[in-house]
Amino acid sequence: MSVSEALKSRDASLLPSRRDEAWRYTDLRAAVRTIPEPSPLGTVPAAPGPFAAIKADRALVIINGRGPEVLSLDTGQVLCVELRLVADSHATSHQSDLRIDLASGAHLTLLESHEGRGAAYLSSANLIVHLAEGASLERVVILDEPSDAVSVITADITLSPGASLKQTVLTRGASRQRFETQVTHPGGGASVRLDGVYMLADKCHTDLTTIVTHVGPGGTTDQLTKGAVRDASRAVFQGQIQVQPGADQTDARMGHHALILSDRAEIDAKPELEIFADDVSCAHGNTVGALDEDALFYICSRGVPLDQARAMLVQAFGLEVIGRIETEAVREVAQAWLAEVGAGGSDGL
């Protein structure tokens, strides 16, 4: 069962459904009855991407699955790349594949956006990333897709000892949207940070899934995902940390914290630990709840209207995650995104 196979064979019955444990909260088969026609050649959008404010060294654009297929960085190379995956498509389907190789000591700042310029499309994007020793990747992703699109984005990231991965994904969802990150973590001083922020409204759905597999000793993983759901939206967080035999001295933390702002909204979380080594320290925390009434009252009592007070608190909630982005200019873009997306919604928010 995979989206790629379904797209390739144009057989909707190969799409994963809620009967597949890994997709229990994201039923693609129910959402897509038939695989749409393949997307035509698209055109480069006139509007700039969400990271336009940052002067990247290089810009890559993949439109409707067509574009560059490989990005390589040489030993010690430092590069900032704007990567735009654009769906210029109406009720059609396509798949993008990109391989990214970082030689030892290379550093890549990847400003990745998935921009839906059409409607009702089905898209699949798969990244395969390899980080050699001491390489580092800072990946910041903005998902900006229409509420009727079905989109699955996967990244399979393999680290070498001493490598570092820092990832933040920002999304407001789609009809069905899955952002999946699989990390093979060698330990050996390698470090992983996987963060996410979702701000959903209307009937949007998003599914942030991570699987971090510690295969060697001495690795650290730090995950923080926060988000809010309004209206009839639904957010899914599935985080799995695996520690394989021998991966001792693993230190892994995972946090997922969600705000439900409507009785029609839903949060599903499955934070999972699978530990096969004894000398480890792993923890996860998960909270789901409403906005703090006392804080709301406090802000209102200072003269702020209720809607604005709510928006203020929702944004403040997501800010903690964005504060973990290291590059200042990127953090500013993320803050602007939060300010824009965090204020919306039709439940009076």
Binding site: I260, A269, P271, L273, I275, V280, S281, C282, A283, H284, G285, N286, T287, V288, G289, A290
Partner: peptide, 10 residues
């Protein structure tokens, strides 16, 4: 609703 969940493995 308010759900709090904490887990540790040591």
């Amino acid at each position: 609703s308010k759900f709090e969940h904490e887990a540790t493995t040591t």
